[in-house]
Amino acid sequence: MFQLGSALLDGCVLAVLSRGDAYGYALTQNIKKVVSVSESTLYPILRRLQKDGFLATYDEPFNGRNRRYYQITATGRDRLETTRTAWATFKENIDSIFGGETDG
């Protein structure tokens, strides 16, 4: 019903990674549990967040191959906090228009 902009998707990825490092496949499955996003849109997001310094990567051997893990950086946590605050404001505003419970 609602379209997730890139800011929110970035936020979702950062939020999941703030709870622990993850490799591409597991991360995708985690995100997909919450929002309906196609697999192919997540890769560019990961790559961009990494290039912007919000994520770091490291490789760990697994079953005779390497798994690339994504890890949130300090800058990434700052970005997540910014997104969180912005989201809270946004949500409050929408709620106030909808006249939900927050209307008091």
């Binding site: 490799y23 591409g24 192919s40 890769y43 990961l46 790559r47 191959r65 390497n66 690339r68």
Partner: peptide, 27 residues
Amino acid sequence: QYALAYWNEYLDDAGPGNEATALAALG
């Protein structure tokens, strides 16, 4: 190279049994 490595690893992690499903979901 980075993208190919990512998707190769992705399909590895999907598991041999799920490869066809994963590929179909990828588009």
